[in-house]
Amino acid sequence: MIATAADLFARNGYHGTGIAELGRAVGLGRGALYHYIESKEAVLYAISKDQVDKMNALAESILDKGLEPEELLREMARGLLRNISTHRSEWTVFFREYGALTGQRRDHVIAARERYESYWRQALDQGVRSGVLRPTPRILVKGILGMLNYTYLWFEPDGVLTPEELADVFLDALINGLSSRGVPQN
């Protein structure tokens, strides 16, 4: 039911999808549907919470591996792009619709998103402490995640690059920069 709702919300928008439409899509009448769900907002919350919780768990496990700073960042980026490419509808709903959540549901999703950002900050800080990376403004985490997250709009997992290869392209540009200084000319 959650996957079907994610597909509908991604295609039609959260506000553009009625509970009757969701019921038809999963083969349940309105009464039967409410036996399984509390509300349409509860479904939106489940979609949003599930993905960000998965990414937090993955980031925690990657941080616990004791990887070198560059590999740590690469693994985090690869994991995020793998998840986005596998759960594109869910991420579309998360990025476009989580603002429709209210009260504690909204607070929980925002806190979970901020926790995920903190894991990226920890990874960058490890690189600075080890001398591999230079200190960066705290806002850079939002820029990095924006670059990676925006792929939900255009990345095709069956295209030229795998999610892992795309993550490496982005991380190469981030870590090595785009400067041609010191790069031999052809």
Rank of each mutant, 00 (worst) to 15 (best):
V52E: 04
P135T: 06
A123E: 00
Y98I: 01
L63R: 01
T151W: 05
M76L: 04
A6H: 07
G13M: 07
I144R: 02
L72G: 01
F95D: 02
G31K: 11
L28Y: 10
I144C: 04
G103V: 09
P184Y: 09
R138D: 13
A20Q: 10
S61D: 02
A6E: 02
D7G: 04
G13P: 03
Q104L: 15
E97F: 10
R121D: 09
A46R: 03
G127M: 04
R78V: 10
E75W: 05
L73H: 01
M76N: 00
R181P: 04
R74C: 02
T102M: 13
W120T: 03
I139A: 13
F155G: 02
L153M: 14
L174C: 03
L58W: 04
T151N: 05
M1Y: 05
D7A: 15
V109T: 10
F155T: 06
A59Y: 01
G29R: 03
S48A: 04
A112L: 08
Y14N: 07
L178T: 07
L124I: 12
D53G: 11
N149C: 15
N12R: 11
G99E: 13
G23R: 06
I37Q: 05
R138E: 15
P69H: 13
L140W: 09
S180K: 06
D168P: 04
K49G: 02
A32Q: 12
F95I: 14
E38V: 15
L22F: 09
E114P: 09
A6R: 00
L81K: 00
D168Q: 06
A167C: 03
T17S: 12
H108A: 13
N12S: 12
E68Y: 11
L166T: 05
G79C: 01
A100K: 13
L133R: 05
L148P: 06
D50V: 11
S180A: 02
L67H: 00
S89L: 11
F94W: 03
Y119W: 07
S48G: 07
N12A: 08
Y14R: 00
W154M: 15
M55Y: 11
Q122I: 04
E97G: 05
G177P: 01
N83E: 09
R113D: 12
A42C: 07
E117A: 05
A59C: 09
D107F: 15
T4Y: 00
G103R: 05
L33T: 02
T136D: 12
S118I: 08
F9A: 10
G146S: 10
W91N: 10
R74S: 12
K54M: 11
A3E: 07
G146I: 08
